[in-house]
Amino acid sequence: MENVKDTFKEVASAILPVTIVVIILQVALIRLPLEALLQFLIGVAFVSIGFFLFLLGVTAGLLPVGEMIGKKLPKTKKSWLIIGTGFLLGIAVTVAEPDVRVLATQIDEVSGGTISSNILILSVAFGLAIFVALAMVRTIFRIPIHYMLIGGYILVFLISMLVPEAFVAISFDAGGVTTGPMAVPFILALGVGVASVLRNGSSDSEGFGLIGLASIGPVLAVMILGVLFK
């Protein structure tokens, strides 16, 4: 019951400010037709209900399961299994990520089908998956995260010089949309779970930084796609 109350408060704090600002703008400035305002309010109600149910599902299912998987994998003492699982989960959560699908659909429409949504989704998924796997490598072998972040972004900026300008913009948006409501809870819980076991619970914070590292993958993947489309 306490979880339900906390989730309700979280949804209210996220949705109410936007709703209040739009209503103030409506009264003071923009004067949208009444039909448009009603559509907005109905949309707010649907989003609130959906967001509430989603957050309950994340708390009850995604986070615990992700962390349990992360804690079980190191006990197999098979590095390849931990890395491979990170790769597969990276693909799965990216394909399921609604933010990625929105971006892919928009790019498909703007490009007139030249860059199809399926190609973009797969590119982003493989990019994220590779870097989730690298994040698992970093946790297993205790590689300082700043080495991998610096190396990753140096590579990003070098490749950006070879890529059409439109793809540079798309690539950074792709990196952003992968940090959405499906990918973040599951991957972060996985990383914390793996780190807590490999560090014997002494440094669970080692599991953090995984999302920042993983988001480099989609940026690089879309840039490489841009080189191929050049």
Rank of each mutant, 00 (worst) to 15 (best):
124 V>T: 13
124 V>P: 00
124 V>R: 05
125 A>H: 10
125 A>F: 10
125 A>T: 09
127 G>W: 06
128 L>Y: 14
128 L>G: 07
128 L>M: 14
129 A>G: 07
129 A>I: 11
129 A>R: 12
129 A>V: 10
129 A>S: 15
130 I>E: 10
130 I>K: 06
130 I>P: 03
131 F>R: 07
131 F>K: 08
131 F>Q: 08
132 V>F: 05
134 L>W: 10
135 A>K: 03
135 A>F: 02
136 M>H: 00
138 R>G: 01
138 R>Q: 12
139 T>G: 04
140 I>A: 06
140 I>T: 07
141 F>T: 05
141 F>Q: 06
143 I>R: 01
143 I>H: 00
144 P>H: 12
145 I>R: 00
145 I>W: 00
145 I>F: 01
146 H>L: 11
146 H>Q: 14
147 Y>G: 00
147 Y>D: 03
148 M>D: 08
149 L>E: 03
150 I>C: 10
150 I>N: 06
151 G>C: 04
151 G>P: 02
151 G>L: 08
152 G>C: 03
152 G>R: 00
152 G>M: 02
153 Y>G: 07
154 I>G: 03
154 I>F: 12
155 L>G: 00
155 L>E: 01
156 V>A: 04
156 V>C: 02
156 V>H: 01
157 F>Y: 13
157 F>V: 13
158 L>G: 11
158 L>M: 12
159 I>G: 05
161 M>A: 14
161 M>C: 11
161 M>N: 13
161 M>R: 12
164 P>V: 12
166 A>K: 12
166 A>D: 11
166 A>T: 13
166 A>V: 14
167 F>P: 00
167 F>D: 02
167 F>W: 07
167 F>A: 06
167 F>R: 06
168 V>E: 02
168 V>H: 06
169 A>S: 14
170 I>D: 03
170 I>E: 05
171 S>V: 01
171 S>Q: 05
173 D>W: 13
173 D>M: 15
173 D>G: 14
174 A>D: 06
174 A>S: 15
175 G>F: 09
175 G>K: 05
176 G>M: 09
176 G>A: 09
176 G>K: 06
176 G>F: 09
177 V>I: 15
179 T>E: 09
179 T>Y: 02
180 G>F: 10
180 G>E: 11
181 P>N: 14
181 P>H: 13
181 P>Q: 14
181 P>I: 15
182 M>D: 06
182 M>V: 15
182 M>S: 09
183 A>S: 15
184 V>T: 13
184 V>R: 08
186 F>M: 14
186 F>E: 04
186 F>Y: 10
187 I>R: 04
188 L>R: 07
190 L>S: 01
191 G>A: 13
192 V>S: 02
192 V>C: 04
193 G>V: 09
194 V>C: 08
194 V>L: 08
196 S>Q: 14
196 S>V: 07
